[in-house]
Amino acid sequence: MIYVWPVAVLTLIYLVLTSNFTLNNIVAGMVVAVIVLLLFRPQSGNLAWKRLPTAVLASIKYIIRLMVDLLVSGIQVARIVLSPSMPINPGIIAIPTRCESDLSRALSAHAITLTPGEMVVEISEDGIMYTHMLDVTDADEHVREAQEMRETMLKKIFE
């Protein structure tokens, strides 16, 4: 029963990619989706239906936030690259994370990489993310603030 949603989503993606909505193709998409699911075996997290609306809203907010971050980081790196003197002070700093599960840690690292001038190089066992930054001068405070905000958003999605 838990596999119904993944199959539906995967089938939809297949249909979108092939842009062919005949019955044959829908059946073919379902077969492909089932094969993919058999190969990957998703872990069945207990989906809490009660808090689904909040989670979906939080996810949408989070995606918009990521888009804005991508835009800002593009502009910032472009400015650094195009300026003749190349004003960078590169370095690696440690950012602690409060996220517990593997998935939210991975998403958190992903979000950090999308934020301006930061890129996760390594994650240690206890969840400290070592992040390469183009400009490490007075980075600490700024980073901690952004990290707090992102983690509250992720918490809203997952808990």
Binding site: L71, S73, V77, T113, M119, H132
Partner: peptide, 13 residues
């Protein structure tokens, strides 16, 4: 590391 900032983010953008 600095080069990956350019390719990994600006390129995608």
């Amino acid at each position: 590391y600095a080069r990956l900032h350019a390719t990994g983010k600006v390129g995608v953008f």
